[in-house]
Design a protein around this nucleic acid. Sequence first.
DNA 1: CTGGATCCAAACGGATACTG
DNA 2: CAGTATCCGTTTGGATCCAG
Lengths: 127, 127
Amino acid sequence: MKKEISRKCENDRDNCPVKDVLNRVGDKWSMLTVIMLSDHGTLRFNELHQLIDGISQKMLTVTLKMLEADGLLTRKMYAQIPPKVEYALTPLGESLVTPLMHLYDWANTNMPEIKASRERYEKAVAV
Amino acid sequence: MKKEISRKCENDRDNCPVKDVLNRVGDKWSMLTVIMLSDHGTLRFNELHQLIDGISQKMLTVTLKMLEADGLLTRKMYAQIPPKVEYALTPLGESLVTPLMHLYDWANTNMPEIKASRERYEKAVAV
DNA sequence: CTGGATCCAAACGGATACTG
DNA sequence: CAGTATCCGTTTGGATCCAG
């Protein structure tokens, strides 16, 4: 079970799914975007812009394009003036929410302990 | 349930556990390191260096320090010449493996679909 | 063997101005 | 409204050399 992970990473150097998915999941905004779309359903560009606290317009654009390219969300343009574009998760994108949940739960549960550990570490280093 | 995630991220801007954990989980080498230690148990510096394909010595050092600071692994030095240092996951570190598994399984399952989607997207853009 | 210290190129990402 | 284009500081991370 466990062994499977590293064995794949050792033998299949350029095709390690963990690396690949973490590169996507791990970037600054992708996961927040997926989460927002999961929570709120279909959203327009500006709605996302406001929901994802602190994201710049540039990064939102880039992030949405990546997620679209990966097939995690769909982009629906309406031929209107002013333009209207709606983003929504695909089933694939939705399916990512579940494992993400587990990670979130872990983070939520253990963050206090981690923060405490960081502070202890800081003090130990200072000495 | 779902709502919880984004609500926390919206209201608690500087204390969003998702951001926080993804900053740790999402960096280039942390997760691979945790996985290796989970699979192989206690490992020495050079063993990790060889197991984690492609990591530089610098990044391994940095990554190990971060994980130690967060309390995810322990560092055990032996007062010898030449030095010997052993790294092992703490219970906290072990507990991270489970949610990571879910992510790994998702990645493993869906990577083909994602790659196919990326190729389709490339071609669509090229036109 | 286990790192620390430095240098440097590339990638990331914010701010701003502009467009259909 | 939904981006694109550009500039530019910051961060990341590899290579290399050095040390206990």
